[in-house]
Simulated scan of single mutants.
Amino acid sequence: MTDASPLTDIRSRIAAAALRAGRETGDIELIAVSKTRSAGDIRTLLEEGHRSFGENRVGEAEGKWPELRADYPDAQLHMIGQLQSNKAEAAAALFDVIHTVDRPSLVKALGKLVADGKTCPPCFLQVDIGEEEQKGGCAIGGIAALLERARKAGLDMIGLMCIPPLEVEPAPYFALLAKLADEHGLRRLSMGMSADYETAVMLGATQVRVGTALFGPRPA
């Protein structure tokens, strides 16, 4: 008997974590983080039936995904890296969801697309959950104001996203994000990566972003 593929193993772990939390597995989307990965690596997962992928850079995604989507038109692409305002239109045209709305200038750029009748995908507001200056994300105290600004600009804000600090227990940060989402009437939580996605599922994640555990170590 052959060993299960990484994709099968991770799906099983997500299902087990959901069961322990009394949740439905179907409420949790596994996003395969394909940044820096080749089109061939991505095709392997596509051939296994996986369809949700995440990229960090608009330019890199533009170089890989038009051809991949020609063969797999039902693939869903998530923008999970920091997005420059001047790339907003290109990102909106390529991605199905944007996870990293975090500042007024980006809201303004995306809102202009809406005002001009162009496509703008659903968005998560990224929260600087660990109050780390080096990371993107809206300050916790600024969530309400930025959400209001985004909604007035016509953006479809569907949830909150976070990246907890490295090398600390992530559970308190995931629990805090869930609490914040509930306070602001948002139902989706983009949280959890290769090292902690099971914890994130236990605490309410609806989207988990997994790269290394699916693809193996990133090329140097």
Rank of each mutant, 00 (worst) to 15 (best):
R11E: 14
V168T: 14
A21D: 06
A17M: 13
I31P: 00
S105K: 15
I14L: 15
S194A: 06
C138N: 01
D182I: 00
Q76T: 13
A91D: 07
L186F: 05
R43Y: 00
L189E: 02
M202C: 03
E131D: 15
I31K: 03
R51G: 07
N56C: 15
L186K: 06
G137F: 02
A139W: 09
E55A: 11
A195T: 14
S5P: 04
P219S: 05
C120E: 00
E62Y: 03
T2R: 15
Y173A: 06
L113R: 04
A144K: 13
F174T: 10
M1K: 13
A39F: 01
K108M: 04
I163T: 03
Q76C: 04
Q84N: 02
T2N: 14
A153Y: 12
E131K: 10
T2E: 15
G154L: 13
G111C: 08
T8P: 00
E55T: 12
L113T: 00
I28F: 02
L68D: 02
P164R: 04
L160N: 01
L176C: 09
G22T: 13
V210H: 01
Y197M: 07
I163L: 10
R149S: 11
E60D: 13
Y173C: 08
Q207T: 12
L155T: 12
L110I: 06
C123D: 11
A4P: 02
A205I: 07
A205G: 04
W65H: 07
N86H: 14
Q134M: 14
F174C: 07
A171C: 06
E167G: 02
S52N: 15
C162W: 07
G59W: 00
E198L: 12
K87D: 12
P104Q: 05
Q82K: 11
R57T: 02
R69C: 03
K112N: 09
G141F: 13
R151C: 11
V58F: 09
I129P: 01
A205P: 01
R209W: 13
R13D: 02
A153M: 13
L166Y: 05
W65F: 14
R149C: 00
L125Q: 07
D102E: 11
T100V: 10
R103I: 09
I31Y: 03
L46W: 08
A91G: 08
P164A: 06
G216D: 09
V127I: 13
A175I: 07
H78F: 10
A181Y: 06
A93H: 13
A213Q: 06
A4H: 03
V114S: 12
L203T: 08
E133S: 14
M79D: 03
G26K: 11
I129M: 12
D182N: 11
A21M: 08
S34G: 03
S105C: 01
R188K: 14
P121V: 00
L186M: 11
P164D: 07
P121I: 03
D9T: 14
I143N: 08
G63V: 02
L46M: 07
D9R: 15
L160V: 08
